[in-house]
Design a protein around this nucleic acid. Structure first.
Length: 147
DNA sequence: GCCAACGTTGGC
DNA sequence: GCCAACGTTGGC
């Protein structure tokens, strides 16, 4: 999952303990949350639009996808006029802080690692704020973070 | 249903 | 700040 550290970074999550991943407004990204994440799922926290960009830490899903309250809030920048409590359209998971990596695994390093060449993150034009990671990719990132 | 125009993302 | 890539919108 990507977030801009200037807006909300791994240290903000460390301070908060857990957070509701609200405001996602892309159907593919939403579907990853509703279909592919469950309580206990491990998630990499990626710092986008950062210097340098890269994977900053680890978190874990503590609540499956639920209605995104920002979609129903007329004062929110994420307000969705078509959303109703019965059909909120947008949903999001709650994640908790697990760890901040001892060092950032930068996008550049990820690019250089042949084992990670197929990561969704590296595919051309890949901009989704939530992307799938395979078990082996996940393990490799952890190894790099701790290596 | 097509597609041009527009907005957003995010690395550089 | 630039711009490639992509998603969304809305007129037709």
């Amino acid at each position: 999952m990507k977030s801009e550290p200037d807006v909300y970074g791994i240290e903000d999550l460390q301070r908060d303990g857990q957070t509701f991943w609200g405001g996602v407004r892309n159907y593919q990204a939403r579907n990853f949350m509703t279909n592919d994440m469950a309580v206990g799922s491990q998630v990499l926290f990626y710092h986008s639009n950062a210097e340098p960009p890269g994977v900053a830490g680890l978190m874990k899903v503590v609540s499956e996808a639920q209605a995104d309250p920002t979609a129903l809030d007329a004062n929110s920048e994420y307000f969705e006029p078509k959303a109703t409590p019965e059909n909120p359209i947008w949903k999001c998971v709650t994640v908790k802080f697990v760890e901040k990596f001892p060092r950032l695994v930068s996008l550049e390093e990820i690019r250089k690692n042949p084992k990670l060449k197929d990561m969704a993150l590296l595919q051309k034009g890949s901009r989704l704020s939530i992307q799938p990671v395979t078990d082996s990719e996940f393990g490799e990132i952890l190894k790099m973070a701790r290596g």
